[in-house]
Structures are given as C-alpha cells and as structure tokens.
Design a protein around this nucleic acid. Structure first.
Lengths: 152, 152
DNA sequence: GATCTAATGCTACAATGTTGCATTAGATCC
DNA sequence: GGATCTAATGCAACATTGTAGCATTAGATC
C-alpha cells in the first residue's frame, strides 16, 4: 500500500537552509551543501565534483563555482584559500564562528580548528583596523601523526 | 679626469646577499631583490614586473617567477598568498623572523606586521603538530584609515 | 680571452576561475 | 494540474596565474 503523496514534503536540513535564504532549492545546491555538511575537512572543487559524479548528479565546473559562491554569499559555507592557491569550502558561515584552520603537509587536507578563534588576541600597530583575522597552521595533522608512529 | 676602474667593484647589499647564497649575481636577481628591499609592502608579479620595466631591464614572466622562487628558496625573500590567490613577495626570510601580515581591503596592499609573531600563542588539539603558522588580518590599513578621517 | 654551465627568454601548456548567452527547470499564479 | 516567469544551469570561449622543455646568453672560472 503506497503512502499518499506528502502535501508538504520533508526537506533535508540542507534544503531548508537553502529555502530560508530565499534562493531556489535545486538539486545541485542541496547536493553540494550536503556534501559539505557531511565532510569533516574542507573540500576543493575537485573533491566536490567527484562526490557529485559519484551520486550521478549532473553538473559542470561553472555551475559548481557559482553554486559555491552563492553558498558563501548566503553564509551557508565558508572558504579557505589553501597553500596550492585553490579554494576549499566547508559548510557553515565564517562570520558567525570565526576559527583557525590546519593544513596538513602530509595528506594535503585542510581542517577546521573550531576551538581556536584567531581574533582579538593580538594588538596591532596604531591605525590598523582589522575586521577579521585568518589563521592557518601548517604541519602534520593528528591522523597522519598517528599513522607514522606519533613521535610526540 | 676619469676615475680608474675599480679592481674589486663595490656590490650593493642585494648583490652581496646573492653572491653569499652561492648563486650567480645577475642583473635580474639583483634588480628584483632591490625592488623588494625598497618596498614597505609585499609586491605581486605585476608590481615587480612594472618596476623592472620602469628601469629598462630585460625580463620575462617566466624568469621573474623563477627568480622569485630562487630568492625564497635561498631565504632572501618570503611569500604570502593574497586573498586574490596571487603570490606576493617581500625581502627577508620567513623562517628567521616569522610575522603576521595585514591585507588592506581598501587599497589592496599586503603589509608585514613584523611586531606580531603568529606562533606559540595557541594550543592546538591533541595530535596536531604545527611547524609554522600563518596569520593574516583583513581590514583597513593605517594609511587608508587616515585618508578617510580616522574614525577611531 | 676561452670555456663551462647556470640563468635567461622563448613557446607551449596546465590549473583555476570568469563571462556571455541560450536552455532548463523551480516557483508561482490561476 | 497546467501556464508562466525567471533564477539557475550548461556550454563555449576567455582570463589569470603559474609550469615545463629547450635553445641561447652571459656569469664565473681557468
């Protein structure tokens, strides 16, 4: 016995966020936001494109760029520029919760350090008016350190 | 009465540094290093190329890239990746004196904050082994703040 | 001054991101 | 449920930043 069509279909959390932003709820947007939400690390375009392809979703490079820009604009995702000068994305706004990032030189991943706030710990020379601070550590991440015998 | 040709020509500080690194002292290298040394802010490729052109020096894009990479490798210059994902360079090594940077969103310049050391002020989660930290402030620099009436 | 090769200057290419425009498909209205 | 309106998409072409290969030039050394 088939269920009756739901009058107000249950949206995923991602879809709800997108709808709340006033934009159209499209397959690409929901899929991209969900990919970001389900990842512990920040993802670059290739990572995301690969995820979309794995799910059989139609997409192209340009749409992905525009979708990600839109998500950042709406505060649904934030962007880090990695050392390879490629952008990486992660779900969640930046302004609401500023935090540091960690770039692992072994595995290349960029992780969020939610516990570290880069702002308001430094005194700048007179005249400088900082609006936000970006703090990126480079080194070996916990996973890679463990994998090779945690020398600490 | 012309001066006699100097037997051991006096080298500029830049040329001396280059010679001390074991590399050949070429026009491009000395010129690029001098441009960097004379600038208070970090310069991108275009800035440097414009300076070289103004001095009538022969150069091309690729040589400039290689020259800058070499200077960084020798510890004679350091590199910052700007928000426009383009590299910016400044004289002086990074390892010897790690410091924060300030990106002015008004004039686009990236300045060095020699007085601020980004390292050893944060406690990272267990397992993370940072080797260096990168700290970039975004906001309004002293010059631009003054120019519009220093609201602070 | 001759020689040896690091450094240069080409050309061609790779990676990342952008612009313009025709087409598709969410949302809305009836 | 279907017509309509336009945001979002998909495609092609382009822009910017950085690399690779290789013949030529010019620092350093003998």
């Amino acid at each position: 016995m088939p269920l009756p069509a739901m009058p107000t279909p249950l949206l995923t959390p991602a879809a709800n966020l997108i709808a709340a932003s006033g934009g159209r709820v499209t397959r690409t947007r929901t899929a991209v936001l969900e990919v970001l939400q389900h990842s512990a690390r920040s993802l670059n375009h290739d990572d995301i494109a690969a995820e979309l392809a794995a799910n059989g979703l139609p997409h192209d490079r340009v749409t992905l760029y525009r979708t990600l820009d839109w998500l950042v604009e709406q505060g649904l995702a934030h962007r880090v520029i990695g050392p390879d000068r490629a952008r990486r994305f992660k779900a969640g706004g930046e302004i609401s919760s500023p935090h540091a990032h960690f770039h692992c030189e072994r595995c290349g991943h960029v992780l969020c350090l939610e516990s570290i706030r880069p702002d308001e710990r430094f005194t700048l020379p007179a005249g400088y008016e900082p609006e936000r601070a970006e703090l990126v550590f480079h080194g070996t991440c916990a996973d890679c350190g463990r994998r090779r015998g945690a020398k600490a």
